[in-house]
Write a protein that binds this DNA or RNA. Structure first.
Lengths: 221, 221
DNA sequence: GCTTATTTTGAACAATGGTTCAATTTAAGA
DNA sequence: TCTTAAATTGAACCATTGTTCAAAATAAGC
């Protein structure tokens, strides 16, 4: 399924104002979708947050579903690139262990989420939604799985004896923990009954690396 | 916030037919909520699945939100009881390690989900929804957190040196992995590119126990 | 069996929300 | 500057959906 089967050719370049509107709409959509979910999000809320008339949202984003897909796609490519770059660079510096591999997968995302652009935090919730809902399985297949496969290749190379299913299992658990890290600080703080509970990236990586290692060791016996 | 501030007293016992209708409606609501999410679920779909007229859903379940809460509450108490019983029984058989504690938390749920009642699998998706969405934080606080605290107490007793925040961190990651196990078999199978990928309970427990242990060890140094 | 609280039914209501559209404004291309 | 494609605006459309209601059917309590 290609992106657009009917590619209407443009006769003119988009104006600066049009580009700005489109960007504001996508940002607003990202925020509202992340906050309310796909069904819960209202196009009118997106329009209000973007401070544009209602009709303009459909004009730029198409249908609500098309808008959602575009919002998810927008950062997926950059994220995949950053992850693969981190992996390539780490490989250039010597042999990789499990911690290093997972670190290359986690850190680019976490760096963005902790960085200056607050939209990346909203994006994390979007990814969590897509990853959890079978209704969006095609998005996962197209945008996220290729990169995941690449990282799983590295882990499989480290442990040639174990089946890919075992590695996939550990990887899915690790991604679940990553998304929990990004979206459940309120949860951790509530359980720790102290507001200064600050989960660390190192803690997350340590958890997942040890978990994967144990799962793999279990399968190797 | 108590359950019902205006408790209208009953003058008659509910009829057998009424009890059956109510049960069918709750089962149908559980299935539809799990499949479509809270916003995506339609009261009409619930009525259709339960094979009752539309109005009867509101009559028995109250508002859509009240119905959702009741569906979540319905199994929460039984689940909490099973978990605490498993923990008590395991404690009676000697000192507990991390694997045993997590096993007591995971197994009752997994046994139910794998058991005869298919509704428990739908319930797993409901719990995942509630756990992930801050909008339902009050449900988590009321229904799930007390049991989680009890299990975290055991882990804390095992490692007196580490802060509760570290334990909470590992616990949240573990629950995330549990929910991924219950709701993401399609995901694991897709990544493993083999349909016979069968994640095991032992694999999940091994992953989480080792992960928590590593996170705690990291904090103890 | 009688009474009436409760349940059931089907319909209607009112609000919501995604989408469409014609008219207007803007600015790109020549 | 002139032409017109593209963007913007505000309104309307219409299917959807949660909720309510009055009348009819049912069955619990005496």
């Amino acid at each position: 399924m290609t992106k657009k089967t009917t590619e209407k050719q443009r006769l003119r370049a988009p104006s600066k104002r049009s580009i700005a509107s489109r960007s504001r709409i996508l940002d607003a959509a990202e925020t509202v979708f992340a906050r309310d979910g796909f069904e819960g999000a209202k196009v009118r809320d997106i329009a209000a947050l973007a401070e544009v008339p209602l009709g303009l949202v459909n004009h730029h984003g198409g249908s609500k579903e098309a808008l959602f897909r575009e919002v998810v796609e927008r950062r997926a490519e950059e994220l995949a690139r950053l992850r693969l770059e981190a992996l390539a660079q780490a490989k250039g510096q010597g042999a990789l262990d499990l911690t290093a591999i997972l670190g290359c997968f986690f850190r680019p995302y976490l760096a963005k989420a902790a960085g200056s652009d607050p939209q990346w935090l909203a994006y994390a919730r979007l990814v969590a939604m897509v990853s959890a809902d079978p209704a969006w399985a095609d998005i996962s297949t197209d945008l996220f799985d290729p990169t995941a496969q690449r990282f799983m290749d590295e882990i499989c190379a480290l442990h040639p004896k174990v089946s890919r299913a075992v590695v996939a299992e550990g990887f899915v658990y690790s991604v679940a923990a990553l998304l929990a890290f990004l979206t459940s600080e309120w949860r951790i703080a509530a359980l720790a009954s102290q507001s200064d509970a600050q989960a660390s990236v190192e803690g997350l990586v340590a958890f997942c690396a040890a978990g994967c290692a144990a799962r793999i060791a279990q399968a190797e016996t």
